[in-house]
Nucleic acid binder design. Structure first.
Lengths: 141, 141
DNA sequence: GTAGCTGCAAAGCATTTGCATTACT
DNA sequence: AGTAATGCAAATGCTTTGCAGCTAC
């Protein structure tokens, strides 16, 4: 409820309905510090006592992604993970291969060096993905 | 046969058998400029008249990936793509959303700036992913 | 000769879809 | 009221697996 408010508004502005299920998905992603898979979201919502269908979670994530409110993360190629998009900073993560936690990377390669100087002429860049893998402090012990 | 030779040797060195099917998969990836999915590889090998089973393609790609000879590419999260690893330069790609072609990126964010200066202390980096999406010259018209 | 591979067919999962019902606006 | 969204269950599609037969070494 708290942090998700901006996302509620964004949905309404786009003419989409603000349902209990959509709120729940947004809240869940907002509460979690790390990217979540559809099943994770489904289970967490159920734990909170709210009923929701897995198919609805998938459809909601699809919708949010289309509206640019959520982004797919490649961390684990065998299942899609999603994270809320933040306004100013890009979504770049460090993933701990030990505990699975993720931490924000305060660095975006595309921001630092313009793509134009790296690509042939007449190419257009519309997006990018940048993720780093390794072990966090705790798991290094 | 041509470019894949180094990969044949690598397999043998690791005590793995050099079968017709494994050669075919390596050759296919070496011949293609862009990352391929298992099905792509399967079809291309069949077109060349060689028989192979899809399951074998998957198993071969798994094996090659375990040995560090092949890398999964995140381009399309709905199906895994693979590319041969090259010795010196990292695997970073620009993907054209129009025609699906991929072009090598002559730039690696991790090489340019050491990760240590960007991450908290006692973190270890073992790998990363960096991919750029957009439109190539031809598709921009 | 023998362990490692392959082929085949069936199983496993994540994700999607069709359709009737429900509930935002 | 009307339409978009949900639930349910079945379908889809990529990927994996068990097992018997084959083959590289």
């Amino acid at each position: 409820m708290s942090q998700g408010n901006a996302f509620y508004c964004a949905l309404k502005k786009k003419g989409l309905r603000l349902t209990v299920q959509r709120k729940a998905v947004i809240d869940c992603l907002a509460a979690s510090g790390k990217p979540l898979g559809a099943e994770d979201i489904f289970l967490q919502i159920q734990e909170r006592g709210l009923g929701i269908n897995l198919a609805t979670v998938y459809r909601t994530l699809d919708t949010l992604a289309e509206e640019g409110l959520v982004e797919q993360v490649a961390m684990d190629l065998s299942r899609a993970r999603y994270a809320l998009c933040r306004e100013r900073q890009h979504l770049h993560h460090f993933f701990c291969l030990g505990c699975g936690e993720s931490y924000d990377l305060p660095y975006c390669p595309v921001k630092e060096r313009s793509m134009e100087e790296l690509l042939p002429e007449a190419y257009t860049v519309t997006g990018h993905r940048y993720e780093v893998y390794g072990y966090c402090r705790r798991c290094n012990a």
